[in-house]
């Protein structure tokens, strides 16, 4: 196990370098960062040249990348468009997004798996067909539609929630945005669990468990669920990364100042430092989440042993 973890950590290095280099190049190709700094006005050529020299933008791209990565490893992610260090932005943005992600994941686990088990056990009955239809609708409607609709109905029309989230972004305020963020994944978790449960319900070892005289509840929770959850765990694990980075739409709708919001601002203002910095951290989150999922496999399935 230890050797496996070390090997996986070593494998992360090239992935990490590749991903950051790619994003660095893309941001550089995309536009002129100096133009972004000057705002909407045209930049004065002398000022632009001076700024370029100051930020090291006159040097070749590979050298810029090396300098940047060197700084990153000393904990310096550069400065954002408003002169704030990017690390400071991260310190405010990530806790908010992490809270949002936690809420979304809890929704996925609790609602998604429950619905999946219920429908999987009652395949072909009205409950099953109903839930399937709802998940299909949720999957096919884009997040911004669901988000805006809920904001309009719950926030504006009925006044159950505040339409936009305050800068504190407490757990209570994030429940509805979290549900919106989770909606599509939740539908997938439901379908994945349903298929898995329905398939394993017919398996021989479930029949053995019943033949041993175990009560239905115990058969389902101990024997059926345990095996059926493996594909679901994979999905949820990889979804953590997607939820953290993919919250741009949801965070815009509910005005949450999280990672998605800052990334959006960074892209809009063509601020290389912000975009590359945040994406670098997100790459790390993805890699670690994937490693954890793989390690969780070994916990769930004793047949998997990593050497």
């Amino acid at each position: 196990m230890g050797r496996y973890v070390i090997r996986r950590l070593l494998q992360m290095i090239p992935v990490f370098i590749g991903a950051t280099l790619l994003i660095f190049l893309m941001v550089n190709v995309m536009g002129d960062p100096i133009a972004g700094l000057c705002g909407d006005r045209q930049c004065d050529p002398a000022t632009a040249a001076q700024l370029e020299k100051e930020f090291g933008l006159d040097k070749p791209v590979w050298q810029q990348y090396l300098t940047y990565m060197g700084n990153v490893f000393t904990g310096d992610f550069g400065t954002a468009f408003n002169g704030q260090p990017v690390t400071e932005l991260m310190a405010t943005a990530f806790p908010v997004t992490i809270r949002l992600t936690i809420i979304a994941i809890v929704f996925e686990i609790v609602i998604g798996i429950t619905l999946g088990v219920v429908t999987g056990l009652r395949r072909g009955r009205p409950v099953d067909s109903g839930v399937l239809l709802v998940t299909l609708v949720v999957i096919s409607v884009p997040t911004f539609v669901t988000g805006l609709l809920l904001q309009l109905l719950l926030g504006v029309k009925w006044g159950w929630i505040k339409p936009s989230v305050s800068s504190d972004a407490t757990f209570g305020e994030l429940i509805v945005p979290g549900l919106v963020l989770a909606s599509v994944s939740l539908a997938y978790v439901t379908r994945l669990t349903r298929t898995s449960i329905a398939e394993n319900k017919r398996s021989d070892y479930v029949r053995t468990a019943i033949a041993k005289g175990l009560p239905r509840r115990r058969v389902v929770t101990r024997h059926l669920l345990r095996n059926s959850l493996i594909p679901v765990v994979t999905f949820i694990g990889t979804d953590i990364g997607a939820l953290m980075g993919g919250a741009i739409v949801t965070e815009r709708i509910f005005n949450i100042h999280g990672v998605g919001f800052q990334l959006y601002q960074g892209i809009l203002r063509q601020n290389t430092q912000t975009v590359v910095g945040f994406v670098t951290v997100l790459v790390l989150v993805f890699l670690v989440a994937n490693l954890l999922v793989d390690l969780l496999y070994a916990v769930l399935d004793p047949r998997i042993r990593y050497a």
């Binding site: 029949r207 345990r226 399935d301």
Partner: peptide, 12 residues
């Protein structure tokens, strides 16, 4: 049961 490989739960 007939097939002891599938009739025993692999996870316990």
């Amino acid at each position: 049961f007939q097939d002891p490989l599938t009739a025993l739960s692999p996870y316990y």
